[in-house]
Computed example of a mutant assay.
Amino acid sequence: MIQVSVTSTEVRNQRGIAKASGKQYDINFQTVWFHTHDKQGQKNPYPEKSEIILEKDANGAALFWPAGEYTLAPSSLYIDRSGNLAVAPRLVPLKPKAQG
């Protein structure tokens, strides 16, 4: 399981015109922190910062993730058109640990 921490709901927008196609683009990003492991399977001591692309609602507003702890959904992994394993992060909330 890969744990993902969301600490801010700030959204970064990037828009422009693609050089290759000449088409306009409008993409929203959110910073997240991945709790990764080394090649031996040991958890790294610190989470690593990354950005994920956000989906949009029917009005084009970014659907950001609330602050909290998540894991990657199985639907995050897919085979791209070149036959390579690819990742498009989709998050699933982690259930809080029961205290007692």
Rank of each mutant, 00 (worst) to 15 (best):
F34S: 02
K19P: 01
R12D: 12
M1K: 14
Q3I: 10
G68V: 07
P96D: 13
Q3V: 11
K43I: 14
H37W: 07
L54Y: 12
H37Q: 07
T71C: 08
E69F: 09
G83F: 04
G83N: 08
L91M: 05
G83E: 07
G41L: 09
R81S: 07
N59I: 08
H37K: 10
A18G: 14
W65F: 12
R90L: 11
Y78D: 02
Q14N: 14
K56I: 12
T36H: 13
L77V: 13
Y70H: 09
F29V: 00
K95A: 06
E51Y: 13
V4E: 00
Q42D: 13
I52L: 14
G83W: 04
N59P: 02
W65G: 01
S5W: 00
K43V: 14
A61N: 15
G22M: 00
A67Q: 09
V6S: 02
V11K: 03
Q30K: 01
L63V: 14
N59Y: 10
S76D: 09
D80S: 05
Y70N: 04
T9G: 10
Q99G: 15
R90N: 04
M1E: 14
G83C: 06
P47C: 08
V4L: 04
N28V: 00
K95W: 00
L85W: 06
N59D: 14
I17P: 02
P45V: 04
R90P: 01
I17R: 15
L72E: 11
R15H: 11
D57C: 05
A61F: 08
A61K: 13
W33A: 02
